[in-house]
């Protein structure tokens, strides 16, 4: 395509967009709805993932050691644990540190602090705080602890049950684990479905807009216009549909996320949608605009192709 033809294709794409007035506005609005849906899907899945990860991080287990357990033995156990592939992090809390954390937490509570003084000796156990890479792995970590050589160092109750917090919270952790994996799966399925519907809606809208030009396309062919010269302006219109609808959608997202962020931050444990949105505005804009452009241009190309067959 030579330069003058290229220029004319652009000129006519622009002029047609404005002369089609109502049809163009309607197309942009419906396409905005599609891009809005895709945007919500993208934001939603990123956000859901964030919530799941932050919940998972809150799950860990602690092992408490007998007061006479040597620090050296505990540290060697920490090292053994760290070598396990399932383990993400192991933190050692010594008896002194446990005491310090306790007094810090109860500062100003004179009754508690006084009773501590009455005991005189440090009543706390040294502990290891273990977090796993995956909440499903706690069972095997707990078993490893129970069967290890140093298991005798771990405090136990009268019934002989070792003091590992996982055993105490086992039911809750397992329930949460299955809940989170279901949430991930459902979130993914819903995203795919919504995105698919959004693409179909956008394609159909552009197709309808071009359907109006079916007669014109055949006239252009009879007058001797090449297929490329006929297709070009429609692709330019597709670019404009995509660009305008994605910009419009971003503008609409701004107040919506501001409002939901304010209302829901407390529910999601301090995660704020609006802060996430503004911090990643460039990436989100890039995703939405490229989605819009791809949708607009491909829909136009497919729709025109149908009427260009001689």
């Amino acid at each position: 395509m030579d330069q003058i033809t290229f220029k004319r294709v652009f000129k006519w794409g622009f002029i047609n967009f404005f002369r089609n007035g109502v049809v163009s506005v309607a197309t942009v609005l419906v396409m905005s709805l599609s891009i809005f849906m895709i945007g919500i899907v993208v934001m939603g899945s990123i956000f859901l993932n964030g919530v799941i990860v932050s919940l998972e991080e809150k799950v860990d287990i602690s092992v408490y050691f007998k007061q006479d357990a040597a620090e050296q033995d505990i540290l060697s156990m920490q090292k053994n644990l760290q070598d396990l592939p399932e383990v993400k992090d192991v933190k050692y809390v010594s008896r002194d540190e446990a005491l310090r954390i306790f007094t810090e937490r109860h500062q100003g509570d004179t009754v508690v602090l006084q009773s501590l003084q009455v005991v005189e000796e440090n009543p706390f156990y040294a502990s290891l705080e273990i977090s796993a890479k995956d909440t499903a792995k706690y069972e095997s970590i707990a078993q490893f602890l129970e069967n290890s050589e140093q298991a005798s160092l771990i405090t136990a109750d009268e019934a002989g049950q070792k003091k590992i917090t996982f055993r105490q919270n086992q039911a809750a952790i397992e329930k949460l684990t299955s809940l989170l994996s279901t949430a991930r799966l459902v979130g993914f399925a819903v995203s795919i479905m919504l995105a698919f519907i959004a693409v179909l809606v956008a394609y159909n809208t552009v197709r309808l807009a071009i359907y109006n030009s079916k007669e014109e396309i055949s006239v252009m062919q009879l007058v001797g216009a090449s297929n490329a010269f006929i297709r070009g302006p429609f692709l330019v219109e597709g670019v404009m549909y995509g660009l305008l609808s994605s910009i419009f959608t971003i503008a609409v997202f701004y107040p919506i996320f501001w409002w939901t962020g304010k209302k829901t931050a407390s529910i999601f444990g301090g995660l704020n949608v609006f802060l996430y949105f503004t911090a990643n505005i460039l990436e989100i804009a890039a995703i939405l605009i490229s989605t819009g452009l791809i949708l607009g241009v491909l829909s136009s190309a497919f729709a025109v192709r149908k009427y260009l067959r001689v």
Binding site: T5, G224, F229
Partner: peptide, 8 residues
């Protein structure tokens, strides 16, 4: 003009 534009 379209007939001429189509022919470049």
């Amino acid at each position: 003009a379209f007939a001429l534009e189509a022919g470049g």
